[in-house]
Design a protein around this nucleic acid. Structure first.
Lengths: 203, 203, 203, 203
DNA sequence: AATGAATGAGTATTCATTCAT
DNA sequence: AATGAATGAATACTCATTCAT
C-alpha cells in the first residue's frame, strides 16, 4: 500500500518528466498525475531533485534488466554468434522502447547531467559496461575505429529511429524496428566478418 | 549597432538554452550573458517564447546553410557519386557540430515541440526535405527499408557520436568524426551498391 | 499511564518551545521529543495553541508553588523581616530557575500575549498579586517610587542575570545567584530602612 | 529613492518582527507593511534570515550610537563622577526605549541566537564592551560581585521596567523612568561609595 | 533605445491537522 | 488509545514581464 503510492509517484513522475522535462514540470503536476496530494509526494521524496534521481535510477535499472538479464555472452569463435548477440540486444531495446516509451524518452533527454547525483551516474555506467566489454571483444579481432565509436553510432541510430518515430517523421512497427537492427548490424559487420574470416592473416 | 545587440542576444540565448534548456533558463540570465539589461531583451523579443523560436530558426537556418549551400545533387548513374554525396554531407555535419556546438546541442534537444511555432516547424522540414529527396532517389533504386528509416538511423548515429563525445564517453577528433562517416555509409551501402549494380534487374 | 503521556508531552513541549519559540516549533517535533506519534498529541490537546497554553499554565503554576507555598507573610514591625522575606523569595527564584531552566526561559519569552488565553493570563496575575501585596505593605511605609516600579526592577534584574548566564556573558553558581540577591535588595533597602527607622517622622 | 525603499523595509520589518517574532512573521507581511510588493523585498535582501540580521544590526547600531556617542569616560577620582556617568547612560537608554520602542523590544527578544550570524554577534559585543570596561574600572575600586553580575542586574532591571510598562503592569512616564535610574544606581552604589571613600584601606 | 527596479503570479516546500487502520 | 500516512492551505522564494526614468 505504501509502496503502491511510491510506485504510482515514480510512474507519474516518469511520464510528466518525459513529456515536459525536469524544469518544465511542476511538483503538484506530478502529484496530481499520481492521484495524491502534493504533501504526500514529499512524504516519499525529500525534494524534486531526489524524485528525478529515483525516477532515473528506476528507469535505468529496468532498461539494464531488459537488456542484460539472461543475455549469454556470445561464443565469438562460432560464426554468426556476434551477429546473433547483436540482434538479440537490438530486439531487447525494441522491447523496452515499446513497453516503456516514457522511460526511453526520459532516459534520452539531454539535460540530465545538471541534476543527476553520483549514484545515478554510477548506474548509467553499470548499464553500459557489460555491453561495451562484449563489443570490445567482438571488435578487437578486427581493428577499425574504437569500440566506443561503433557503440555510440549504433546506440544513436536506435535513438534516432525512436525519436523520428515519436515526432512522426516515420511510421514503423515492431517488425520494422527489428529489421532496422539488421541494417544497424552493418556498422559492425565488416569488422566482425574480418574477425572471423581473417584471424590467420593477422597471426 | 541595433542588430549587434540582437545578434548578441540570440547567441547568448542559444548558449544558455543549450546548457540548461528552455525552462531551466531565466530571462535575466540570457540578458546578462548577452551583456545587456533585462528590459533591453524585451525590446528585441516580445517574450521568452518568441526568443526561443528565433534562436531555433536562426540555428536551424545556419545548419541548413552549412549542409546544403552549394551542395550539388549527385549524378546517381556515376559509380561512387552517392557515396561522395553522403561523405560530403557528413563532412558538413561535422563542420557544423564543431563550429557551433551549442547550436547543435540545442537543436537536438527533445522538448522543442512544446514551444515551437508553425514557422519554426516549417524550417525544420525545409532543412530535411532536400536531403530526403536525394536519399530517396539513391535508395529507390535498391529497395530495402523506407528511406525515412535509413535517414533516421544515420542522423541518429551522428547525434549519438556527438553526444557521447560531449558526455565524455569517447574522445574523438575531426578526422575521427569524418572516418566515422565511412562507417555510417555502410547503412546505405548495400542498397546503394545494389542500386548501381543492379539497375538492369529493375528496368 | 495516560497521564504519563500527557506529562511527557507537556515536558517535551516546554523544552522545545523554550528553545525555538512557539512559531519556530513544529507539532511533530514536540511529539517526537515526547516519544509519541503526532496523532497521539492530538488526543491530549485539541491544537497547538491549546498545548502552549497548558504548557504555560503548568510552568507558571509550578513557579507560583515554588515561590509562594508556605511562604509566611513577614511581620513588618520586626527589623530585618522585610529583608528576610525578600531573601527567601530570591532564594526560591534561584531554585526554580536552576531546577527548571526551560520553564524559566519559556515564561520569560516575549511573544506570549499573542496566543495566551484568558485563563493563562489570570494565572499570571494570580502569581504576581501575593508578592505585590506584601511588597506594597513593605513599601508604603516608606514612599518613593511606586511598588510596581520596584518589583519590575527586581524581577527584571533577576531575569537579566539568568539570561546573561544562559547566553554565556557571565558564569555564576548558586551561591553567586543568592549573593546577587543581597545586591538586588538594595533596590528596596533605603525605603524599607526608612520604613522601619523613621515611621515617627511620618506620623 | 532606492535607499528609501530599503529603509522602509528595514523599519517595517523591525516593527513586525518586534510584534510577532521572526517565525511568527510572514515575508509578504513585511513587504505589505513597507508598502512594496513581495518580490521587491527580495531585491534588497537575499532571504528572510538576511533581513532579520540587517534589521538587528541596524537597530543595535542605533542603540550603540544613542548610548555611546559623545559619552565621556568618567574621571573616577572625582566624587560623583561614576554616578553621573551612570545617570547619563540610563537617561540615554530611556531615550532609546522611548524613541524606538519596536527596536528595543526586538533587541530584547530571546530567540535571536538561532538566526543571527557572526557579524551581528560581533556588533552585540562591540556595544557592550565599552560600557563594561568603564563599569569594571568603577567597580574594581570596590570589590564585591563580578562586574558582569552588576551589569546584568542593571540591564535586566531596565528591561524589566520597559517590559512591565509595555505589558501594562505599570504606567510610567519619562520622568519616572529617569527616577528609576536613581534606584538602579543603588545596585552599584555601595561599591562605588566604598571605592571613593575607602581606597586608603586597600593601599 | 536602454536600463534595472518593481510587480505579483507562480513554484517548491512545510506543517497543522485529520483519519483510516 | 495509538499510529503515522495523507491532506492541502500557507509560506518562502523565483521569475516573466512591465514601466518610470
Amino acid at each position: 500500500m505504501v509502496d503502491d503510492k511510491r510506485r504510482r509517484l515514480l510512474d507519474a513522475a516518469l511520464k510528466v518528466f518525459a513529456e515536459r522535462g525536469f524544469h518544465g514540470t511542476t511538483v503538484p503536476e506530478v502529484a496530481a498525475a499520481a492521484g495524491v496530494a502534493t504533501g504526500t509526494l514529499y512524504h516519499y521524496f525529500e525534494h524534486k531533485q531526489q524524485l528525478v534521481n529515483e525516477v532515473y535510477r528506476d528507469a535505468k535499472l529496468r532498461l539494464r534488466g531488459t537488456l542484460l538479464d539472461g543475455l549469454p555472452d556470445p561464443d565469438l569463435d562460432k560464426p554468426g554468434a556476434a551477429q546473433a548477440w547483436f540482434a538479440e540486444l537490438w530486439r531487447r531495446l525494441v522491447t523496452y522502447a515499446r513497453a516503456e516509451p516514457y522511460a526511453f524518452r526520459f532516459l534520452e533527454m539531454q539535460d540530465h547531467v545538471e541534476y543527476l547525483d553520483a549514484e545515478s551516474r554510477q548506474i548509467e555506467l553499470a548499464t553500459l559496461t557489460p555491453m561495451f566489454s562484449v563489443a570490445k571483444r567482438v571488435h578487437d579481432r578486427a581493428g577499425g575505429p574504437p569500440t566506443e565509436v561503433l557503440l555510440a553510432l549504433v546506440w544513436g541510430a536506435f535513438v534516432g529511429l525512436v525519436k523520428a518515430s515519436r515526432l512522426g517523421y516515420l511510421r514503423i512497427d515492431d517488425a520494422g524496428l527489428v529489421e532496422a537492427g539488421d541494417i544497424a548490424w552493418r556498422l559492425f559487420e565488416r569488422e566482425a566478418t574480418k574477425a572471423i574470416k581473417k584471424p590467420p592473416k593477422r597471426g
